[in-house]
Amino acid sequence: MIDCAFKLQEQAFTLRVDHRLGAARTAILGPSGAGKTTFLMALAGIKRPTAGQIHVGDQVWSDSDKRIYLPTHQRDIAIVFQDSRLFPHLTAFENMHFARGAKVTTLQIRQVIEALELDAFGHLMPRQLSGGQLKRVALARALVAGRRYLFLDEPYQGLNRELKGQIMDFVDLWCRDQVEQVLITTHLMGECSHISDEFMVINGLGPTFLGPLHELVQQESSLKQLMQIGIENSLACQVIANECDFIVAQLSATQLYVAGHAKVGEQVVLKFRAEDVVIAKEACSMTSAQNRLVAKITQIHQIDGRVLIHLDAGQPIYAEITPRALSQLRLERGDDVHCLIKSMVLRVA
């Protein structure tokens, strides 16, 4: 449990937060330059809040009134910096070994090396590695530090797509067993965690918001910022069939066809962006879109010339359409509509 109520004055903006971060996985969202990194660095003790407190569990990490600032290395955290920051005089493996926590077993180290595919370049010096490779080593180093809190600053940026999914899966799995709380900053909703419990929306110029997605989309002020970032849908489904290059996932009464691989019986989360959903008033079977869902419109939000439709298809779905489409279709709350989603845009998490 991270209780933070502080103010931090920067040149470009003032960060004000007053939140209790209790979820195991919190994604910190916001456009670049909004203060996401500043927020993490304040929690880490690398930047000092101008005023306010940070309490974690029964520890005081920072209290400007009592002039308490717990040094970074005593906060039981592991940080992945946006710029990797590998130690240049140590090889990739030596970097990991240097950070290795006392409780982390050799087997676990092996698992990290395998999942992040470090074997091919583990013996090289950081200056010989590419940006994506540096990122992977920095991530591995933080995982094997075996700390209670994990702060990841844009950890998946610059990784290639297939590996990104695999690494995100592994980090999620690792964090569930090994880490009490993980905070991930990102400017893309799809690039934080496959299953974030809560989102924190930061905008240096305005207030910050914290909550699960379905709550944040209800308030106009937080929804406005979420729409700027781009809303990502996630549907929890069960895999019922696995063909050669696609899987069939069951969502209540509907079957969804998804490009990709997964084991039959597995629970998966399907991800797709709100703007990738097509809404039709009538069932039209002659389209290339492989997936059709019947859903009921529960809310329509119009913000700054953009429209977000809230739909209920057993699970909430968000669709972004243009105001022109809204007036043409004369969509209204309570309407039953068909959602068309291409297999191509669905990602398995």
Partner: peptide, 25 residues
């Protein structure tokens, strides 16, 4: 000097950081 931050940010104490990171570099 951000490398020292990185080391503290992995829970490494200042004295070990000095010996293993700062001094060799």
């Amino acid at each position: 000097w951000r490398l020292e931050q990185a080391s503290y940010g992995l829970g490494i104490s200042p004295s070990v950081t000095f010996r293993k990171i700062t001094l060799p570099l």
